[in-house]
């Protein structure tokens, strides 16, 4: 991530309505060159809509969007020439080979014939597809298809990459290799905006934007989000009888939520000063053996679920 340069993406007061439905509701954020920004949010929160607006595929209803210094509303074609876009469906031709797909997309992006071999070579090397150029896409595993799709999206050397759930349904090891590629691109100064459902992937991002009902609920680094944690102490307990422990916690004063996690319970307290001793006292009072009680740091998923739940409850007024 480098500073001092103008931001690669600037979104200011973005609103998108489809009829009466507000898909994007006054969203503002910026992405620096070489930054990896993660988009998190429930299905239908508006992540894909924002990405499509940034790609110039939808016109914004209100607000300003500048991508690579170009106003998306006035020059969507100019934006499209400077960005790479990869959708969750990997728009590849399954009956063509790796090389044929790359050649096709090079043509689509208007890569000059003289530059084509060099660019395709770059994409093949970048995505680690060497040795598989002649293979049909249909015979590649999900992880390889995903890397080819990324290779196709960077053929024209875009400075900005939009990845819409690029890793959905791809196995963990392939996902890690894929993230290596994204980090390598970011170090070369490419800005990456990526949406995901995988919390472990959110941790790989420099910053994370949390979106719910079209609103930006939080934008920060994963570490800062976890530290803020909604201000709720979190404990892991390991009771012998999960059902009895859950019953004891139900409706108890000071307890925000309790959820089963394998053989353990994750208990979130509502009061920031609640501690392990308070929890032990609560169980003693109810005559339930809580087993081990340990304070724990909230995971990004805990934070996410918490923020989404409180945003949904307040209808965004608190956010």
């Amino acid at each position: 991530m480098s500073t001092g340069e103008p931001d690669a993406i600037v979104v200011d007061g973005l609103v998108k309505r489809f009829g009466a439905f507000v898909a994007v509701d006054h969203v503002s954020f910026a992405v620096a060159p070489g930054e990896i920004m993660g988009f998190l949010g429930p299905n239908g929160a508006g992540k894909s809509t924002i990405i499509r607006i940034l790609c110039g595929l939808f016109a914004p209803t209100e607000g300003h969007v500048r991508v690579s210094g170009i106003d998306v509303a006035t020059d969507p074609e100019g934006v499209r020439a400077r960005i790479g876009y990869m959708s969750q469906k990997f728009s590849l031709y399954r009956d063509l080979t790796v090389l044929e797909n790359l050649t096709f997309f090079a043509g689509i992006y208007g890569v000059r014939r003289r530059a084509r071999a060099e660019r395709i070579g770059y994409a093949v090397e970048m995505a680690g597809l060497g040795g598989r150029e002649g293979q049909r896409v249909a015979t590649l595993s999900g992880g390889w298809q995903q890397r080819l799709a990324l290779g196709c999206a960077i053929l024209h050397r875009p400075r900005i990459l939009f990845l819409d759930e690029p890793t959905s349904g791809v196995e963990p090891m392939a996902r890690r290799r894929f993230w290596d590629l994204i980090h390598a691109l970011a170090e070369d100064g490419v800005s990456v905006l990526v949406s995901t459902h995988y919390m472990d992937e959110a941790e790989y991002c420099d910053r994370v934007a949390l979106i719910n009902h079209g609103r930006l609920v939080a934008v920060d680094t994963p570490g800062a989000l976890k530290r803020a944690g909604g201000g709720r102490p979190l404990f892991v307990i390991e009771p012998a009888d999960l059902g009895a422990a859950l019953a004891a916690l139900a409706g108890a004063a000071g307890i925000a939520s309790a959820s089963v996690y394998g053989g353990t319970l994750h208990v979130a307290a509502a009061d920031p000063h609640y501690d392990a001793a308070d929890l032990a006292a609560l169980f003693a009072e109810r005559g339930v053996e809580p087993g081990r009680i340990e304070p724990t740091a909230p995971s990004l998923e805990d934070v996410f679920v918490d923020l989404v739940a409180s945003d949904t409850r307040t209808g965004g007024r608190a956010a």
């Binding site: 998190l40 949010g41 429930p42 299905n43 929160a45 759930e165 959905s168 349904g169 459902h197 919390m199 999960l242 059902g243 959820s259 089963v260 998923e301 996410f304 679920v305 989404v308 739940a309």
Partner: peptide, 21 residues
């Protein structure tokens, strides 16, 4: 839970734990 957001995934798991019980 492939393609399921974290909030829905939690609900999904809550159902599974109830079944286990």
């Amino acid at each position: 839970t492939t393609g399921v957001d974290p909030v829905s995934r939690r609900e999904f798991w809550a159902i599974l734990y109830r079944l286990r019980a």
